[in-house]
Design a protein around this nucleic acid. Structure first.
Lengths: 174, 174
DNA sequence: TCCGTTACGTCAGCCTTATTGACATATCTC
DNA sequence: GAGATATGTCAATAAGGCTGACGTAACGGA
């Protein structure tokens, strides 16, 4: 446009106290997540997978018998996006689909042994980073961080996430 | 590929204690980040921007006078990827580039007033979520979460991040 | 002053992950 | 049987990332 490119005054001069005090959370969340998700990348490319495959495999492994609808709700992507990566995971023998028992329209998702092994290898890698972090900051900070992260989730979704994270295990299906 | 699709036994039966105890961090980090980055999306699309633009604008605003090399180190993307979004931010008048004073090879990045306003509007939105979280879990948990998140960052990068997050402000350049 | 290095920009092509919209099929439920 | 639900799929598109190669300008030391 006509580009009146006036320079902005320094941030500290304008920011409200509230905005200023949030930059640390905003930025540390960015950096922690950046490094956290980068760990599994090398292993994943060995299998021809990306981060999307990782996410699907993780939650299928965590909650065997998961339905497509539930997985879509967790990942917040479209079914077309999910279908692409899921199809690859099934074709390569990492995930198995079974027709639901109570509701035969559903496709329940289960990890194969191979899928479990990969999912656990990836979790182990991320777990190493987490354990190193706990060594630095202590178990109390980890517990507090869990409470804080949980409080950062959309209010409508917290019950669902709590069940998934703390109440997960074998579900319905065969 | 001959597909012996044996089902894996339930996770609890195999997981080591160490692996098991990391699932909560892995998953809450995923859900918190998922919701955290989704807040600014609606505003961003109004401007024809995406999350990549947001990240660039945020750090340019936080550290006026940032160089391209420093920004690449923060974002961990290639200069080609950065250049695409940066060019759009400059063309639309949200970021201004100036030739470095001490080193004329460098292009120092500054937010325009327009850029600052947008960056702060986006931070404010994310700050609201953070403040709601603190209301739920308390200031102590926030402080602890910051320590935990910091410890999750690559060791080599912690000093750099600490300077950026806690020691940021106006830098070199006119 | 010359030369190697550094900082940055750019062209070209490609991949992954996501989107929207439309439509098909099987199954459940009333 | 009819409508709603769960899933699969085709097609087109966009965002955001990548590699590789090459060009230019500026720095900095021998």
């Amino acid at each position: 446009m006509s580009g009146a490119l006036a320079e902005a005054p320094p941030a500290a001069a304008i920011d409200s106290v509230e905005t200023q005090s949030c930059f640390d959370v905003i930025e540390l969340l960015f950096f922690a997540y950046r490094d956290f998700v980068s760990d599994p990348d090398r292993i994943l490319t060995d299998y021809g997978f990306g981060r999307a495959h990782h996410r699907v495999l993780h939650f299928v492994n965590r909650q065997p018998g998961l339905t497509i609808a539930e997985l879509l709700d967790i990942l917040r992507i479209t079914k077309q996006s999910l279908n692409r990566v899921l199809k690859e995971l099934v074709e390569k023998g990492f995930v198995e689909q079974r027709t639901g028992v109570q509701d035969r329209r559903q496709r329940l998702l289960f990890p194969t042994v191979k899928g479990r092994d990969l999912a656990l290898a990836l979790s182990r890698l991320q777990g190493e980073r987490i354990r190193r972090a706990i060594e630095r900051c202590g178990e109390d900070d980890r517990q507090a961080a869990l409470r804080f992260l949980f409080a950062m989730i959309d209010e409508n979704d917290r019950d669902h996430v709590a069940r998934l994270v703390y109440g997960a295990g074998q579900r319905k299906g065969q």
